[in-house]
Simulated scan of single mutants.
Amino acid sequence: MTIATAARPHLWRRLAAEFLGTGLLVAIVIGSGIAASCLSPYDIGLQLLENSVATALGLTVLILVLAPVSGAHFNPVVTLADWWLGRRTGHLPLVDVAGYVVAQILGGLGGAALANTMFETATSFSTTERVAGGHLVGEVVATAGLVLVIFALARTRRGHIVAPAVGAYIGAAYWFTSSTSFANPAVTIGRIFSDTFAGIAPASVLPFIGMQLAGGLVGILLVVLFFPTTRPPAAPRLA
């Protein structure tokens, strides 16, 4: 989920990284959700704790491993924000954006299938309805905050801490947002195929994605407001 470096790998390598990273992220979310349901079947709070810790740690590792290849977006909203904020420099061409989004969605579907296979769970549509006013607002907040965290750090040349910062933010957002912070259209689509508390019913997907895109726009506006240009971090005060 970081800004890619100037000497970027070939597009097919970046797309493969986005496919793998998004797939493993969804496998972590769904797999830990299945495990939590088995380990703590009567304690929803403990299930959420197990799910959120696994997701936060797993996401941090995936970003650290794959950021040098593709920037580790794993999220169409992050890709769109990266394109928009860097459009004047041609940082991420539209053809790359389209490829990233397709790779992320396909990766999310593959990750759901992988998690279900590992736990020998039938792949079926989720029955967990999530469309409610509070949940939709939660998705705007979660996604806006995610975009702000990533690009605030990138624009102040603190990209080396994006991985732990994003992991920490997503882990916290599981708890402080009513929607449990999906904040990612590709992950949302993948979670259709998990009939556990980590899943989302197909009818809830489009409203969630709509709010995630709205949250991404809010996040971009906040980045432009607070960090209009890329700049070095402030020098430490010695006295």
Score class of each variant (00 low, 15 high):
1 M>H: 08
2 T>P: 00
11 L>M: 05
18 E>M: 04
23 G>Y: 07
25 L>P: 07
27 A>E: 07
28 I>D: 15
34 I>P: 06
34 I>W: 15
34 I>D: 04
49 L>A: 08
51 N>A: 08
54 A>L: 10
55 T>L: 11
56 A>M: 11
58 G>Y: 14
62 L>S: 05
62 L>E: 10
63 I>W: 15
64 L>F: 00
65 V>Y: 13
68 P>D: 13
69 V>T: 11
70 S>L: 05
73 H>Y: 06
76 P>N: 10
79 T>L: 11
79 T>N: 11
80 L>F: 10
82 D>A: 14
83 W>D: 04
84 W>V: 12
85 L>D: 08
86 G>V: 12
91 H>A: 10
97 V>L: 10
99 G>R: 00
101 V>Y: 00
101 V>I: 15
104 Q>D: 07
107 G>K: 07
108 G>I: 13
114 L>N: 13
115 A>T: 15
115 A>P: 14
122 A>H: 03
125 F>Q: 09
132 A>E: 07
133 G>K: 04
133 G>W: 15
136 L>H: 01
139 E>G: 03
141 V>W: 14
141 V>I: 15
143 T>P: 06
145 G>L: 10
146 L>T: 03
146 L>A: 04
147 V>A: 07
156 T>N: 09
159 G>T: 09
160 H>W: 12
160 H>D: 13
170 I>V: 14
172 A>Y: 03
173 A>C: 08
174 Y>M: 05
175 W>H: 10
177 T>W: 13
180 T>L: 07
180 T>W: 15
190 G>Y: 00
193 F>Y: 02
194 S>Y: 07
200 I>G: 03
200 I>L: 14
206 L>V: 14
207 P>N: 03
208 F>G: 01
208 F>A: 06
210 G>E: 02
212 Q>W: 00
213 L>D: 08
215 G>V: 01
217 L>N: 09
218 V>D: 03
219 G>F: 02
219 G>E: 04
220 I>A: 02
223 V>C: 09
226 F>C: 02
229 T>R: 09
235 A>I: 02
239 A>N: 01
